[in-house]
Each structure stands twice: as structure tokens, then as C-alpha cells.
């Protein structure tokens, strides 16, 4: 049985349909990638699943229960955690305080303490900086804080929105290595990524979102090999508009 199952999810916003009915599944322990161009609705999908947006239609069930009318904070309590795009760390709190905020829904102090140590083991970089204000960290370190914070809620399903955005190549490698490690620890992951190759290489299965609809889905290897994905997301030529000279002065 799947951990998360989405059926015909529609989200409208300001009169525009951002999601026109998508269906997807995530099995326990699975790492699933959701790729697509900017504006295709990937972030909208994650926000709707996290309870930050209200869907116009569709059925979402998680761990066998419907998520209909379940507020965002309750979803976190139930083990559904989102790491938002742009990280959203609490800039004026220290690294450690950020992580403790992630455990806000829990009240098992002893366990929280040991989970903190687990996070520092997973992200040694954060252990060195536990007292530093999160806002003064580099982009990659902030991404680590955001992920560790989400993990502190002991999620069953971790949703990651663009974890590689704005990161140096080496940092991207590190983050993705950590994502794989989290996955092997048994946490299900729904990964939204602009870098389609990276995402599909890490994931077992993938969905391709185009203008609010699932255009393609399948096992990662097949998607990586497919012509359509190659052309649309892994780089093909397109001539730019524009033919006049910038030199003209008024």
C-alpha cells in the first residue's frame, strides 16, 4: 500500500488553474522525483500536500487516511514535512534553535536530544556551527538546517522543494548524498527539482509535470532515457528572441 496517494488533485489560484488534476503515489521508503519547468505547478503541488493551499478538487490520502480538511500543523504531527523552496530558515535563531523548532510538535525531551545528535551526525557541518545564527550561514548550510529541521519532526514523508537551488556544485553533491542517506534510513521522499538529471539519478521513480498536468511518469532510468525528457529538461537548443541592437540610443 502506498504511503501517499494523490488522485486528480486540482488547485486554482486567482481564477487560474495551477494544477489541473494530477495523480501520484509514494510508497513507504521510496524516493520519488517530481520534475518540470518553472511554473508547471511543482511548488503548488507540494504546498497543497503540506496543507498550505486548499485544493479545489481531488483526493489526497496519507497513511490510509484522507487529508481532507486536515490543517498544516496537524499534517506535520502526522509525519508529513516540507522543506520549502528558498529554505525559510529562522534567520535570527541559532542553528540549534532552528532544529529545536523542528521538534515543536513533539514533547519527548529525551528523544529530541538524541535526535539532535543524530542530525549533527548526519550534517557534521551543522555541529560545528550549532550556536551560529542561521541567517549568517552560507546557502548550502542553510539548506542543511532546513532539511535537519524538517527531519526533527520525525517525518514519514519528507517533501523537498528545490534543494539544489543556488548551491555550489560540491555542495549540491553533499546535499544529494545526504538525501540518499535519509532515504536509506527509511524515510519516504518526494523531491521537486529543477535539475532533472540529478533528481532522476537519485530517485527510484519520477513524474514529469507540465502546465499543471502529469505528462509522463515511470521508473527513473526510463525517464532519463526518454526523448521527451531529454529534449525538454536536459538541455536542447532554442533560439532566443531579439534581433535589434542594444546600441540604439533614444
Amino acid at each position: 500500500m502506498s504511503l501517499l496517494s494523490v488522485e486528480n488533485l486540482k488547485v486554482a489560484y486567482g481564477g487560474i488553474q495551477a494544477l489541473k488534476g494530477i495523480s501520484l503515489e509514494v510508497a513507504p521508503g521510496e524516493l520519488v522525483a517530481l520534475i518540470g519547468s518553472n511554473g508547471a505547478g511543482k511548488t503548488t503541488a507540494l504546498k497543497a500536500l503540506a496543507g498550505l493551499l486548499h485544493p479545489a478538487a481531488g483526493k489526497v490520502s496519507y497513511a490510509g487516511k484522507s487529508l481532507h480538511n486536515i490543517p498544516a500543523h496537524q499534517r506535520v504531527r502526522d509525519g508529513l514535512a516540507l522543506v520549502p523552496e528558498g529554505r525559510g530558515v529562522f534567520a535570527r535563531l541559532s542553528v540549534e534553535e532552528n532544529l529545536q523548532m523542528g521538534a515543536y510538535t513533539r514533547n519527548d525531551a529525551a528523544q529530541i536530544g538524541s535526535d539532535l545528535e543524530r542530525m549533527y551526525a548526519l550534517f557534521p557541518r551543522l555541529a560545528e556551527r550549532r550556536a551560529q545564527l542561521a541567517g549568517t550561514l552560507s546557502g548550502g548550510e542553510q539548506q542543511m538546517v532546513a532539511m535537519a529541521r524538517a527531519l526533527m519532526s520525525r517525518p514519514k514523508l519528507l517533501m523537498l522543494d528545490e534543494p539544489s537551488m543556488g548551491l555550489a556544485p560540491m555542495m549540491v553533491e553533499k546535499i544529494f548524498a545526504t538525501i540518499r542517506e535519509i532515504s536509506t534510513q527509511g524515510v519516504s521522499i518526494l523531491l521537486v527539482e529543477q535539475n532533472a538529471r540529478l533528481a532522476l539519478e537519485a530517485a527510484q521513480r519520477g513524474y514529469v509535470l507540465e502546465s499543471g498536468l502529469i505528462a509522463l511518469s515511470g521508473v527513473s532510468g526510463e525517464l532519463l532515457g526518454s526523448d521527451a525528457v531529454q529534449r525538454a529538461y536536459l538541455g536542447g537548443g532554442r533560439e532566443p528572441a531579439g534581433s535589434f541592437s542594444l546600441k540604439t540610443r533614444d
Binding site: 519547468s37 518553472n38 529543477q194 535539475n195 532533472a196 538529471r197 529538461y233 538541455g235 536542447g236 532554442r238
Partner: peptide, 9 residues
């Protein structure tokens, strides 16, 4: 940043 390979091209 945040663009896919095609948009980057």
C-alpha cells in the same frame, strides 16, 4: 539559479 537545462540554454 532555479532554471532547468533548457531554460538555461
Amino acid at each position: 539559479a532555479g532554471m532547468n537545462a533548457t531554460e538555461t540554454e
